[in-house]
């Protein structure tokens, strides 16, 4: 019997170790596990049991957060395969991709000066979401192809990181604009 603490994130939920994910199944198993392990089930238990329950519930929460996020799930699968993603050391990126990132950032910077900034931001956000979805589809193919495509998968993960950061900036700008306008 292996402890929750010793299992990898996919094992915790008895899910196949693949990028493709049945989200409804993950959600259902998450709820099932928390029903069994949440500290509320141990409200009148001894200190030791409560501690173990907190650790296990925290581990289940962490695994759930990683698996439900397309980028973190990809990173995690690569880690499980022994591929180290080093943020410091930039994976080689194609100049076309970098150019496109610069353009998206410029477009984001100009939103504020436009006549309807929120609508413009929405258009830009949709474009970013679509490109992110394409990267996700490509990552799934690369990860399914096994170790031969690991290099490609690393490049795709790195690109998804760019987009994630961009999406965070879109959200921050949206928050600022809404607070100013309403």
């Amino acid at each position: 019997m292996s402890s929750v603490l010793a299992q990898n994130h996919f094992e915790i939920f008895s899910l196949p170790q693949s990028y493709a994910l049945d989200r409804a199944l993950l959600d259902a198993r998450y709820r099932e596990l928390q029903r069994a392990f949440h500290p509320d089930r141990f409200a009148s238990a001894g200190d030791h049991e409560r501690r173990v329950s907190i650790q296990q519930a925290a581990q289940i929460n962490e695994a759930y957060q990683v698996l439900k996020d397309p980028l973190r799930r990809g990173q995690y699968l690569l880690e499980l395969r022994g591929k180290v993603i080093n943020d410091e050391q930039d994976t080689h990126q194609d100049p076309v991709f970098l150019m496109q990132q610069i353009e998206l950032r410029e477009a984001l910077g100009e939103v504020r000066g436009l006549p309807d900034p929120l609508a413009a931001l929405e258009t830009l956000a949709t474009d970013i979401r679509n490109q992110y979805a394409e990267l996700q589809a490509a990552l799934q193919l690369a990860l399914d192809a096994g170790d031969d495509a690991a290099g490609e998968a690393l490049v795709l993960v790195r690109r998804m990181q760019f987009f994630t950061r961009l999406q965070e900036e879109v959200q921050a700008l949206e928050a600022d604009l809404e607070d100013e306008l309403f």
């Binding site: 019997m1 198993r29 596990l33 392990f37 030791h48 173990v52």
Partner: peptide, 17 residues
Amino acid sequence: SAPYVERRMNASIQRAM
């Protein structure tokens, strides 16, 4: 009973799944 508690917890999760 700490090791026993952990074993029971794990047995219980396996049953749950």
